[in-house]
Write a protein that binds this DNA or RNA. Structure first.
Lengths: 226, 226
DNA sequence: TCTGACTTGTCAACGCCCTGTAAAGAGTGA
DNA sequence: TCACTCTTTACAGGGCGTTGACAAGTCAGA
């Protein structure tokens, strides 16, 4: 049974979340402030953390940062109040896996939780590596192996692959890649993305000319199938 | 102008809400029971539904559940009596977007309404999948399946279908399709729209010559029934 | 019911624009 | 300066959107 840790100071919201997750068959622990949340996260090692940004004692961002700084890879979903755009970005930068903006439907949160669990269960636990086909990639060690053989991979390529893995199955427009992987604010009209996709394909595909993993969706973007 | 459907059996409360929303510039429709509410929601496709939980004939939870089961994504705000914690969770679980506990200030409700409207308008219209007949379409993955079989679909066709789904039940003139799907500023006198409708029909209809989903409304446009 | 004007369905071909790829140019750190 | 990666430029090939022509369908008035 999956275990979720809810870090939320609003008691009513916390109760609703607890009931909701319990109903869905999760084991729920709850912390009303950041300090307790951090302690519980370390002691009970839940499968996923639902973390409010606004918290007493230690903000959600701090909790997230501290967990990551100490090397914990457990999935984190941030709850941000409406309009806290900056928090979103910061949260993702600090290592949150996803975020949900308040107010939200419970099913929405539930879907995100299941999504990150699916994603993290695909990883070999502890090593932070991910496998597809005959390829194994370890994002934390920046290592790529194909058919057992190590393949050199650059930082940009790795980050691109990481974004593909995190959003596998979804069609990702080039603009979003430029935004999320390159962190460009403006959108230059370049072939940069295609270029890097081509380089990645050369490293992970059996036949780069007929890709199986990173497929092109004409006029829409790329889709990763792993 | 945004349209709100109020489903509330208490006449005094309903009147107050109607006046309040009207004052704020909303177009208001009102249903005194769940059955009527469900019908109005489907027929008038409002931008947001304010739904009391306790209703004659069909409870608010049932209305919510039925709407979601039929694939309607329209934002729903539940009105729950104080202490109905279970209703909250259930409501959120059944797909309500938000809830307000009675007694509440009108401004509070108003704020929630505006919040869900902002969210739903900003919602990537590409998330999730949608089903009608034996067809399932996943806009974020750019995938179409009919009778379980995957069918190739191009970007333009997908965007057209997406617009149809978002405006199901409504007669859509060709000019509006050219404007919204093609994003043409000028309106060329072409057969482009019909062409693409024909292509879509070949992919989603059992008998493209006698369409069930995308029907032609002579001299007016097309109407999607899903 | 018939006729004619207008609207809609369909086809095939053209050509635009998107994508793949190589190679040059720019940026960065040792 | 060198080595390396990232970005930009340029060009070729091809997918698919558009278009005009014509057939088929619809509707209104005689």
């Amino acid at each position: 049974m999956a275990r979720v840790l809810v870090v939320e100071d609003d008691a009513a919201m916390a109760a609703a979340l607890r009931d909701g997750f319990a109903y869905e068959g999760y084991e729920v622990s709850w912390a009303p402030d950041g300090e307790t949340g951090l302690r519980l996260a370390k002691e009970t090692s839940p499968d996923v953390v639902v973390l409010d940004v606004m918290l007493p004692k230690l903000s959600g961002l701090d909790v997230c940062k501290r967990l990551r700084a100490e090397g914990h890879a457990l999935p984190i979903i941030m709850l941000t109040a409406r309009g806290q755009e900056i928090d979103k970005v910061l949260g993702l930068k600090l290592g949150a896996d996803d975020y949900v903006t308040k107010p939200f439907g419970f099913m929405e949160l539930m879907a995100r939780v299941e999504a990150v669990l699916r994603r993290s269960s695909g990883r070999t636990p502890g090593t932070g590596s991910y496998g597809f086909g005959d390829v194994v990639v370890d994002f934390s060690r920046a290592e790529l192996r194909k058919g057992g053989r190590p393949v050199e991979i650059t930082a940009r390529e790795l980050k691109l692959l990481e974004y593909f893995v995190a959003n596998r199955g979804e069609v990702i427009p080039r603009e979003r890649l430029l935004d999320r992987v390159w962190e460009y604010d403006s959108v230059p009209l370049t072939r940069t993305v295609d270029m890097h996709v081509a380089k990645l394909r050369r490293k992970i595909e059996d036949d780069p000319a007929d890709p199986r993993f990173i497929v092109t969706v004409h006029r829409m973007g790329y889709k990763f199938l792993g």
